[in-house]
Design a protein around this nucleic acid. Structure first.
Lengths: 257, 257
DNA sequence: CAATAAATTTGATCCATATCAGAGATACGA
DNA sequence: TCGTATCTCTGATATGGATCAAATTTATTG
């Protein structure tokens, strides 16, 4: 087992293999369940061996049977286009639920691949549905999570159809920062689990463009980047840039005075 | 908050105001419910006065309380960007459910506006949740609908980040055609409920580009257009174009010989 | 640790589509 | 019904980011 140093997203799975003791429960499915109900949920959840970087959680076309909560590490969802090009549709961080867009399908509509060593909780969907019959809070939470993903998707559509390259990257970084913060990590310093290529793919940009925007942001003291390590130096400016800003109302950043 | 949608306050009983007799029930929420259950659903649904073109079903920021099934006509969802620009996130046709992305919000995250004279069924969400406790099929159908919308959103993200103008418009027309067909209308001849501007906004293109692509498609005998009336002349070619096609594998349509 | 592969960065050029401008066509209110 | 606002279409021009090319840095492997 190549024990690569995963600072950041490591949750010591063995010790926290139950929802009651999991530090993520307040962000994840168990949210607003009482202890007894969490225990019931616990019983249908299977903990899997960690996935190594590049391993699949499921393939597009596999029989749909489970949804997965990321416990540590990160997952990308992607579909294959007709030409065999990959199109990343989402990245998932700890506590987030993967696979919900397959709920009414026989098969998963996208593939899910680990971006790094990743542990997940496997939740057989049929059992989850059964349990949800008895637990209104669980039901509500499932709806909430799906609804949230719907809204995030609309935001993404907005990004893709209205924002320029700088705004896209700024939005991406802000968004990651927020999510890391909610999970108890620094919103200012984190490690990108994905490559520049994957960022570009996700944001609808060429790798080269992502790279150039990173460089520009560094020149303007917005961020400091070292490989996959990112430091956000000017959160406010980054947030401003992330908003939908037209060229008129906010000139290209140039001299950050 | 000023009460904006006064129209909804008065209900009128009409012949087809019940799910059991509604021709859309097989596409809509009642799908796979038995007659008795449909009757229960019926009782929580309120039919509203038709909305006239341009009237709102709800505004971004209004208190979330209901989802809506379109009965006739069409609805657009849109959000306002920081600059007051509108970004259309979806169009809804009869039998489709509007408002699901607000489920875990206090307020609607987007506005919903009638594109033409439109009738809807108003479904108080809390009542729907109550009912869903007893009706597993209803529960399943709600999940299915949300899951479907998630997948459609991913498709849209793919369109916005990988397809060129022609592919976008072809996809849009094919998609509309399919939806009209499922609703019992001709897949070949239909009336666009939205303006070119709205199509462009939705597809992430300038109006002018939409217009030009329409013209090009006509020159190439793919479609015939008269104002908002569209005839699809070559469904196969349109479908091909709608797929994710790179320049290499499919040269620009030019001489349709 | 060297050797090689993969990822990232930078520069130069090109092109699809935005933007600007203006001419019909259509819808709409007085 | 006319007059005006709005939509749609077409052409000319500009440009943001893609693409191509290549150097450099960072991982991976034997």
């Amino acid at each position: 087992m190549p024990s690569r140093h995963l600072k950041g997203l490591c949750f010591h799975p063995s010790k926290e293999a139950r929802c009651v003791t999991c530090s993520l429960s307040s962000l994840c499915l168990p949210l607003s369940l009482n202890l007894e109900d969490i225990d019931q949920l616990d019983r249908i959840i299977k903990r899997r061996q960690p996935l190594k970087k590049g391993e699949y959680l499921f393939h597009q076309g596999d029989n749909f049977d489970c949804v997965y909560a990321v416990r540590s590490g990160s997952i990308k969802n992607y579909a294959m286009t007709n030409e065999g090009e990959e199109q990343i549709t989402n990245f998932y961080l700890p506590s987030e639920l993967v696979g919900l867009d397959g709920v009414d399908c026989d098969t998963y509509p996208v593939s899910a691949k680990a971006l790094e060593t990743t542990t997940v909780c496997e939740i057989p969907f049929s059992r989850l549905e059964e349990l949800a019959v008895e637990l209104p809070e669980l039901r509500a939470q499932i709806l909430r999570i799906m609804s949230k993903e719907l809204r995030d998707d609309k935001q993404m559509m907005m990004l893709l159809s209205k924002k320029n390259a700088e705004e896209r990257v700024a939005t991406f970084l802000s968004n990651l920062s927020t999510r890391f913060k909610r999970r108890g990590y620094s919103p200012y310093t984190f490690r990108l689990p994905m490559s520049r290529n994957e960022i570009g793919n996700y944001l609808g940009l060429a790798v080269e463009t992502v790279s150039r925007v990173f460089t520009r942001f560094q020149n303007n003291q917005l961020i400091a980047v070292n490989g996959k390590e990112v430091h956000i130096l000017d959160m406010e400016q980054l947030g401003l840039l992330a908003g939908l800003v037209t060229q008129e109302s906010s000139p290209r950043i140039a001299s950050s005075s």
